[in-house]
Amino acid sequence: MGEIPIRCFAVSVVVIRKRTAGYEVLLLRRNHTLIGEWCQVAGGIEDGEKAWETALREVREETGLNCDFLYSADICEQFYEADRNAISMLPVFVGVVDAEQTVFINDEHSEFQWVSFAEAMEMVPFAGQRHVLKHVEAEFVNRKPTGHLLIHEMSRKI
């Protein structure tokens, strides 16, 4: 009997900032894979790296931003990849950044936008992304997240 492997090789990070009008989420337009699509920060876990360390590194590499707070979103982004015949599961993190930080995208992206959650849900191409965005808005914007989801190790690492 055949089996579909489940892979967990990368992370997904929803980067948010608080503005006077409310919270905004950062979306990046892809240059290489999923060319032209709007996505959140994502990237592969390197050898010896913890998933939360990958999240912080990918935010820095892809956007130039430093997270003031990093939370486990308590959810995984999951999707089937036909070319690999595998199910990918990515732990999702929420990176909270200072509203005054400047974004510097790397060559993986052609542009960026800070948008409302409603706008983000219209821009992203996949239902799984919309599910993640709805969850982050409900659990990290509309209510105060539980302190148990805060990545405490972050302050010792930086």
Rank of each mutant, 00 (worst) to 15 (best):
M121T: 07
E111I: 02
H135N: 07
E153W: 06
K134R: 09
F79D: 14
I45F: 02
V132H: 03
R156K: 12
A55C: 11
I87F: 15
V141K: 00
E49H: 11
A82K: 11
G43M: 06
W114H: 04
L90F: 10
H135R: 00
I158T: 13
R17H: 07
N66E: 14
C67Y: 00
P145H: 01
V11Y: 02
K144I: 07
A82Y: 05
K134A: 12
E46K: 14
E81H: 08
A99I: 09
G48L: 09
Q129V: 07
S88K: 14
L149V: 06
G95M: 02
F69D: 10
V41T: 07
V94L: 07
H109V: 02
V96A: 03
Q101C: 05
R156I: 03
E62I: 01
N85D: 13
F104A: 08
P125L: 15
V96P: 03
R143P: 06
A99P: 05
R57Y: 13
E153R: 13
F9M: 09
Y23R: 05
E122S: 15
D98M: 04
Y23L: 08
V41Q: 09
A118K: 12
A127P: 07
E77M: 11
G22P: 06
L70I: 10
L56V: 13
A42S: 12
V14Y: 00
I151M: 04
K157G: 04
L133I: 03
V115W: 14
I105N: 00
E153Q: 13
R30Y: 00
I158F: 08
L65K: 01
G64N: 05
V136R: 01
V141P: 02
A10P: 05
H109Q: 02
C8N: 14
G36V: 04
M154S: 12
M121G: 13
R7W: 03
R30K: 15
V15N: 00
H131E: 11
M154I: 08
A42R: 13
N106K: 09
F104D: 01
D47V: 12
R17K: 15
R84S: 07
G36K: 11
N66C: 05
I75T: 12
H148V: 03
T33Y: 14
T20D: 10
F79W: 15
I158Q: 08
G44D: 12
C67T: 15
A21D: 15
A127Q: 06
T54M: 06
K134G: 10
G44K: 07
G43E: 02
I75R: 06
G147M: 09
F79P: 07
F104Q: 05
A10E: 11
T102S: 10
D68A: 07
V14L: 04
Y71K: 00
L149F: 14
A138D: 10
I6V: 15
L90A: 09
R29E: 01
P145A: 08
D74Q: 11
V59D: 01
I45S: 01
R143F: 00
F126C: 11
C76M: 05
G128M: 08
S88M: 14
E61L: 11
L27C: 01
F69P: 00
W52L: 12
V136D: 05
P5Y: 03
T63C: 05
G43F: 10
E46R: 15
H152W: 08
L149I: 03
L26Y: 08
R57C: 04
F93R: 05
S72N: 15
S155N: 12
A127C: 06
C8E: 15
Y23K: 03
Y23A: 14
